[in-house]
Computed example of a mutant assay.
Amino acid sequence: MADLVTEIRERALALGFDAFGIAPAEARPDLGDKLAAALAAGWHGDMDWMAETAERRASPKALWPEARSIIMLGINYGPDSDPMAMLARKSTGNISVYARNRDYHDIIKGRLKEVAGLLSRRTGAEVKVFVDTAPVMEKPLAQAAGLGWQGKHTVLVSRQFGSWLFLGAIFTLAELPVSEPMAESCGSCRRCLDICPTNAFPAPFQLDARRCLAYLNIEHKGPIPAEFRKAMGNRIYGCDDCLAVCPWNKFASETREAKLFAREDLREPPLSELLALDDAGFRALFAGSPIKRIGHGRFLRNALIAAGNSGDAALLPAVEARLGDGDPLVRGAAVWALAQLADGERVRRGAEAHAGGERDADVKAEWAAVLPEVV
């Protein structure tokens, strides 16, 4: 059996995976209680699917009762530049490192199927592959498989690759020798907790998604809550702050190969160009990207919040052009951005042109917050 595992591992590495480990399907019996506590606290926010799939998510055996072993694999996607430096370039859109290339689901799933196919041929055992689209708790399972440990920011941390690993799982009916679980090694470090601009961590190893910028600008469907808009800065998709400051990341750059470097047009896209995108342009620019899944409206919402935080008055015409957008989510964000960039008279002119005929309650509230006497 050891020879089989060696063959599978070598095939996985040849396909571009960087981390490999095996956990028993009954690993982490504590997951159900941890998940239930997080859901009871409401930390999942609008992600109702987490509650709806809680029973299956709580245990690999609940998802597939006959499963015996779980192979966990990871691909290093560490950036070739410091994501934090881009926060200072306020007239550009800051996209999370993981989303600057092809959708990682597409990158990983095909490779997982190849590894799983080899395992199935060698053992005759049934296999199933999962990449973040099924109720599988990949990070704690990856810890059980020895790939790393869940850091205080709840993201998997690897001694070799820091906080930059895409994860995939292969469930199988085959009984495979398991890897040694990885012990938590954060020590007294709390950089990831202290850097969070919205205090999204109630305590080490706990995340309240409702305060997480990545949740707010990706998963959240409504207006960005006013209390978090300034904190968003120019983050138009995701937030890498807690990952980027992890001291273990230094090993990711040392071991990385040129596999998943960012698309040049997504490194520092100008907000002026992003705000001008129509729906077809949005779909064309982000074809094959995870960004496409949030839709044109939510994307423009994020770009307008970034514009409002930019201090760049040159963006005002692009912002004003969205005051009459067909999507109220976009209109509301445009009102806020206008108020951040324009003087009082220009805001008043915008309100006189658009506020009187507004019917959406959220957009009316945005105008009322800016110029209550106009609405």
Score class of each variant (00 low, 15 high):
residue 306 A to S: 04
residue 115 V to R: 00
residue 78 G to F: 01
residue 216 L to N: 07
residue 8 I to Y: 00
residue 98 Y to I: 09
residue 41 A to K: 13
residue 328 P to M: 11
residue 56 R to F: 02
residue 345 E to C: 02
residue 336 W to R: 03
residue 207 L to S: 05
residue 220 H to G: 08
residue 139 K to P: 12
residue 316 L to H: 04
residue 296 H to F: 03
residue 242 C to W: 00
residue 304 L to P: 01
residue 286 F to S: 02
residue 155 V to D: 11
residue 323 L to D: 08
residue 161 F to D: 09
residue 78 G to I: 06
residue 148 G to D: 09
residue 149 W to P: 04
residue 98 Y to W: 11
residue 342 A to P: 10
residue 149 W to S: 04
residue 267 R to H: 09
residue 348 R to C: 06
residue 133 T to F: 06
residue 85 A to C: 12
residue 254 E to Q: 12
residue 288 G to W: 10
residue 289 S to D: 10
residue 100 R to Q: 09
residue 283 R to P: 15
residue 198 T to F: 05
residue 255 T to N: 14
residue 155 V to S: 13
residue 234 N to G: 11
residue 92 T to M: 02
residue 201 F to D: 07
residue 168 G to K: 01
residue 60 P to G: 04
residue 299 F to K: 00
residue 247 P to G: 00
residue 113 K to F: 01
residue 255 T to K: 14
residue 32 G to K: 02
residue 192 C to D: 12
residue 135 P to C: 01
residue 350 G to I: 10
residue 190 R to N: 15
residue 53 T to Y: 03
residue 116 A to C: 07
residue 372 P to L: 02
residue 214 A to Q: 07
residue 9 R to Q: 14
residue 289 S to E: 06
residue 161 F to L: 04
residue 206 Q to G: 10
residue 8 I to C: 00
residue 234 N to E: 11
residue 108 I to S: 04
residue 144 A to G: 04
residue 339 A to I: 03
residue 105 H to N: 09
residue 39 L to C: 07
residue 342 A to S: 07
residue 361 A to I: 08
residue 128 K to H: 12
residue 173 L to E: 15
residue 77 Y to H: 11
residue 204 P to G: 14
residue 227 E to A: 12
residue 217 N to L: 10
residue 141 L to M: 15
residue 158 S to D: 10
residue 21 G to V: 00
residue 51 A to G: 15
residue 90 K to H: 12
residue 59 S to K: 00
residue 186 C to F: 01
residue 189 C to I: 15
residue 278 D to N: 13
residue 325 D to S: 14
residue 216 L to R: 08
residue 109 K to D: 13
residue 34 K to H: 13
residue 96 S to E: 11
residue 250 K to E: 13
residue 14 A to C: 10
residue 198 T to G: 02
residue 192 C to M: 07
residue 46 D to R: 05
residue 41 A to P: 13
residue 8 I to R: 00
residue 295 G to V: 06
residue 273 E to F: 04
residue 305 I to R: 00
residue 197 P to M: 10
residue 277 L to F: 12
residue 25 A to V: 01
residue 254 E to A: 12
residue 277 L to D: 10
residue 282 F to N: 09
residue 331 R to H: 12
residue 374 V to L: 14
residue 21 G to E: 07
residue 68 R to F: 07
residue 101 N to P: 01
residue 357 G to Q: 13
residue 192 C to W: 05
residue 213 L to R: 05
residue 156 L to H: 03
residue 134 A to H: 11
residue 79 P to I: 06
residue 340 Q to V: 07
residue 158 S to Q: 06
residue 46 D to H: 09
residue 115 V to T: 06
residue 92 T to R: 00
residue 256 R to S: 07
residue 364 K to H: 09
residue 17 F to C: 03
residue 113 K to R: 15
residue 146 G to I: 03
residue 125 A to T: 07
residue 39 L to V: 12
residue 193 L to V: 08
residue 69 S to E: 05
residue 282 F to G: 03
residue 74 G to H: 02
residue 197 P to F: 04
residue 335 V to D: 02
residue 177 P to G: 09
residue 311 G to Q: 07
residue 287 A to T: 14
residue 366 E to T: 01
residue 170 I to Y: 00
residue 242 C to Q: 02
residue 182 M to Y: 03
residue 238 G to S: 08
residue 52 E to H: 05
residue 346 R to T: 15
residue 9 R to P: 13
residue 331 R to G: 11
residue 222 G to C: 03
residue 330 V to Q: 08
residue 352 E to Q: 08
residue 360 D to M: 01
residue 159 R to N: 13
residue 27 A to P: 13
residue 169 A to I: 00
